[in-house]
Design a protein around this nucleic acid. Sequence first.
DNA 1: GATATTTGACCTGAG
DNA 2: CCTCAGGTCAAATAT
Length: 411
Amino acid sequence: MADSGGGRGRGAPPPGAGQPPRPTISPPPVSAYDFPFHGDAAGGEGPSDVIPCPLTPVSSSFFDDVESEFESFAQLVQGAMNSFAGAPPPPWALGEELMDAEWDLGCEVERREEGDLGQQNVEMTEPSPIFTVPPGISPSRLLHSPSPSPDPGKFGMSHQLVAAQVTAQAVQSQFQMHYEAGCSSSLSVATATSLAQNTSPPISLTPTQEMSTLPSNTDNNTFESGEGSHSDQRSQPAALIIQKPPYDGCNWRKYAQKMLKGSEYPRSYYKCKHPDCPATKMIERSFDGQIIAVVYRRQHKHQRPQPNKRAKGVGALPSGSNELDGNPIPADSEPGSQAYPGNFSRSNETMALPSASERDQASNYGTPEQLAGASGGEETGDVEQMKVVMMRTDEGSDSEPDPKRRKIPAS
DNA sequence: GATATTTGACCTGAG
DNA sequence: CCTCAGGTCAAATAT
């Protein structure tokens, strides 16, 4: 009710000020264990290495926490970093990997909540490297990053948040690297972008603008920049860039936007336009328009549009399939960015111009098999149950009925 | 005029 | 049982 009243309107406030150079982080290969579920939903082709979607719990609390427990937090981060550091930063296209992984899983990336984070935290500390911190980025930097309003009391959470943040950063960085390299893979998932970019001078650990630049397939990702042109974005990271939700291959319709309590950024809710598709996704964006986190919920019940392996291209929509739902591509869908990953299960090859969207898409769609399975009734009897939580292993995610379903009016 | 987005209200679940 | 927070709906508005 009233919560949304806060900051509605995703207006994009003035971009914060300049941002520090983006650090480079190379995400290391992640083991499937990261994704407890989905083993091969993809149809078997799924990559064994799955990278957890970097959903970063973005919220002001993060900063708060961080600040309050700065030291501890630093330590925590450092520890995590150390672990990561050990992993070799393969130049592989993270985006693709991610995509595949997500896709295979049909992954529903779920933003880890505080509680969930706890687990994450554990993982972070564990030897299993979620990502490595390349020379470009120094953990110390992260550690030293200033944090805005401290909020003592949430220590535990801060760690988790931090961890998540770091992960996200890593991923983001990676994506960016790819982009720059010419790889168009992008991370649609939650990347922690500068959480505090403008809001506060805080943590510099966020590669922020990366996201903004990333998708830049110029034509595909339609960024809404206050004024700037896409080209500028590349060079001007600080510019206010509003990233549109990544195109997943299906059309999403924004049906709501809300300000979360602990978050400084509003969360946008999108629904798959497909009639039967219960898939929804939530995107958190910073005021700058950067995507901070993307969470997918439920799987698409419909078949994913067939990507004709056409690379993006403005007119490269997959033939006919582009209309995924028969609807014109909404702004959110990022017209033009349709490079669907070939199949739900795999898309690497197709990704000529993978954009964040692709990844996104992958994450939501079930692979054909999955889809079928869903209907068939494997465990997916209901897509809703498909809620796969990236690291949430403790909860019975499968038993999740429907997060919050509004009661249906009797009439 | 149609479609998409915005926004307040409502509902549900968790604490 | 109550309150809080999150998620969704639907009307209003914008494009």
